[in-house]
Amino acid sequence: MKVIFLKDVKGKGKKGEIKNVADGYARNFLFKQGLAIEATPANLKELE
């Protein structure tokens, strides 16, 4: 799953980066902790 990092995550990505991560990792950790959001077309447009 592609995500947009909202904060730096050690060993995974830095704020503003778009990366592929495991679905479970994204849903169970990154999204719940507010560290990333899903890289949907709408979210990508907001990032620009």
Rank of each mutant, 00 (worst) to 15 (best):
A39M: 07
A22E: 13
L35Q: 04
V9W: 04
M1Y: 08
N28E: 14
D23Y: 14
K15M: 10
M1K: 05
Q33P: 02
E46G: 11
G16W: 09
G11K: 05
N20R: 14
E48W: 10
K19E: 03
L35D: 03
N43W: 05
G24D: 15
V9E: 00
G13T: 02
E46Q: 12
L44P: 04
T40A: 04
G11W: 08
E48P: 09
D23R: 13
F5W: 03
R27F: 12
K15H: 05
K45F: 12
L30G: 01
A22T: 12
V9F: 04
K19N: 04
N28V: 07
N43L: 11
Q33M: 15
K45S: 11
G11E: 05
K12D: 06
V21L: 05
D8G: 05
K32G: 08
G11Y: 08
G11D: 08
L44W: 06
G13M: 04
E17I: 02
A42I: 10
I4P: 00
K15V: 09
K15W: 03
K2M: 15
G34E: 05
I4R: 04
A36T: 00
I37W: 07
V9S: 02
A22M: 10
K14L: 12
K32V: 14
E17M: 06
A36W: 01
I18S: 03
K32L: 13
Q33H: 15
E48N: 13
K2H: 09
G13L: 02
L44D: 05
K45Y: 11
F31V: 08
A39R: 01
F29W: 13
K2L: 15
N28Y: 12
F29A: 06
K45G: 09
R27P: 03
A22R: 12
K45N: 09
K45V: 09
G16R: 02
V3I: 09
K19F: 06
K15G: 04
M1E: 03
K10R: 14
L44R: 07
G13Y: 13
G13D: 01
L6I: 11
A42L: 11
Q33Y: 15
F31P: 01
L35T: 02
K7Q: 13
I4A: 03
N43V: 12
E38F: 04
K19R: 10
K32D: 09
G34D: 06
A22D: 15
N43F: 09
I4Q: 03
K14F: 13
